[in-house]
Design a protein around this nucleic acid. Sequence first.
DNA 1: CAACCGTGGGG
DNA 2: TCCCCAAGGTT
Length: 350
Amino acid sequence: MNVSQEILNWFHIFGRKNLPWQKNKTIYSVWISEIMLQQTQVKTVIPYFIKFLKKYPTINSISLSSENAVLHKWSGLGYYKRAKNIYKAAKIISSKYNGQFPDVFNHVIKLPGIGKTTAGAILSISYNYFFPILDSNVKRILIRLYGIKFNKYNKKIDNVLWKKIQSILPLHNAGKFNQALMDLGSLICYPKSPKCNICPINYACMFFQKNFFQKYSVRNKILQLKNYWCIIINYKQYIFLKKCKKYTFWKDLFCFPLFTKKNYLINWIKEEKIVPVKIKQLRSMTLYITRYKFIITPIFLIIKTNKDFKPEKDAIWFNLLNHQKVGIPSLVLKILDKYSHLISQTNYSV
DNA sequence: CAACCGTGGGG
DNA sequence: TCCCCAAGGTT
């Protein structure tokens, strides 16, 4: 028996077959799941996928919605460009493909947010079309299985791996095989300490048989960002949030106004003619986001009334109890949660 | 094409 | 505390 057949047999017994996107499967639901699963673990995606499909059961329901509303459903999941691309793609599908997700590879891959792997995954999983995928699971499996050596992972290695995976893709089971590879990667062939002893293809694997080892991750240095976060509470206990524009992080999501220097914050308050009843600087905190080290100093401003404070267009007064349908980064929600007692204790007469 | 984009969990 | 990693794509 060949390696591909062994993987399929293993999948038949041990593969995951009851994930939310594997039930009532349509090409639309497969698309959404594949986008959500980009660089994101299954466990994290599950609740987001369920909520998203409940809110958006069809492609047209997305294109009739707004980018803010789509980002709202994505809040906390990260890589928000994915949500923006889904919205863009839905518009294209509605106008160009009559609301039907295309089933031609060259059409699928032209949609924003869809590359070679995602296009292959969508079409193979939905219709069992003959397309391979090359995600991080498949890369890791192939490198170990065939003992592929390199100094630094590059485009050339990428091409070698695409050819390899194409060559072992079973003619009549591409969809199952692709899912099997991802399950094998996440259940057996871990990046660290893989469970080789129970791996169905260990007999052919260079990593297991010949003790081959190839490291291929790249390390990024940490960038430190110091910011003062301006948390403004109005007389209704609403929080002022502003759409991020010039910052690379959280573009088009809503966040507290933030400043690199305390003076900038003070000047901004004056320019906006904000008259705080109370100003309180809280203890700085350190948070890590990927390769960014955030050092945040929250500054609370309590204002008596928002009558004189007319924020620019892309800003909202955020109601903790009744969230507006906009995108909010996880960190902002965490900070709001952390200081919710302070906010609710904000008690004064107008 | 290397750098960029988030978040949560493991170690 | 800090690094590593996960169903990648875009610029």
